[in-house]
């Protein structure tokens, strides 16, 4: 991986990923800057998870390249990656140790606080609700205080209150300079929190820019002034997805 230019802490160019005959990503490029929030939206199977896992270094692209800054890239997968037989605290402690955090106890303590899971700390993850499990999942991705944070549908299983807490937390991170790239099916989350939105469909990047610009683009293309979510739906239909 080359060092990113000063314009972006993470740059991807010409990413292609194939699974046999199926092309999951076709020539996707993106740039994310320091402290920026980049939302990735698109229908099921669009390639969001594939793109994020390639950015995370989990999968190798068939073509294209990625460059990142010096810092860590944190990754919160769509499916919780936690040990269900371990307690919440044991999971956090294990990954804090594997991440070689200087003060394991303090790190675990901070994450329990931030995810509001202190009273469930001693419970095995398999006994938690889906939302709480997702909170543990997110907490683990945040342990290393990464420079770039990749979140794959982070709010999917959360109740509205937890969702708000999560975004409060993510926005605070961005404020401190963390670059956040997240995928979501909750379209308003893209509009409200994203500095930029990237629209993917069938592995193809259809749009990349600020939400307001997206609305303008759709208005020009479809001849209709729509608010963000309706514009997104109309845009996809217009493009045949």
């Amino acid at each position: 991986m080359a060092l990113a230019t000063d314009s972006g802490v993470l740059e991807a160019t010409g990413l292609v990923k194939r699974f046999g005959d199926r092309v999951a990503l076709r020539d996707v490029s993106l740039t994310a800057h320091r402290g920026e929030l980049l939302a990735i939206i698109g229908p099921n199977g669009a390639g969001k998870t594939t793109l994020l896992s390639i950015l995370a270094g989990i999968q190798r692209p068939d073509a294209g390249s990625i460059s990142t800054g010096r810092g860590e890239v944190g990754w919160v997968p769509q499916q919780a990656a936690v040990y269900s037989k371990l307690t919440v605290e044991e999971n956090l402690r294990l990954f804090a140790r594997l991440e070689k955090r200087p003060d394991v106890d303090a790190t675990v303590d901070r994450m329990l606080e931030q995810t509001d899971l202190r009273d469930r700390a001693g419970d095995q993850v398999q006994t938690l609700s889906g939302g709480n499990r997702q909170r543990v999942n997110i907490a683990i991705g945040l342990l290393s205080e990464p420079e770039v944070l990749l979140l794959d549908e982070p709010s999917a299983a959360l109740d509205p209150r937890q969702r708000d807490r999560l975004w409060e937390f993510i926005l605070a991170l961005a404020e401190r300079g963390t670059t956040v790239i997240y995928s979501t099916h909750v379209v308003p989350e893209a509009e409200r929190y994203g500095n930029d939105v990237l629209v993917l469909a069938d592995g193809e990047k259809l749009f990349d820019g600020p939400p307001r610009e997206f609305e303008r683009t759709v208005a020009e293309e479809c001849g209709e002034e729509l608010h963000f979510e309706a514009a997104f739906v109309e845009f996809l239909r217009h493009r045949g997805h």
Binding site: W75, P77, A80, A81, Y83, L98, E99, I140
Partner: peptide
């Protein structure tokens, strides 16, 4: 199965 493998091989082990 716990999805932890991908997390682990991202530089942890």
């Amino acid at each position: 199965e716990e999805n932890a493998f991908r997390r682990l091989v991202r530089g942890l082990v």
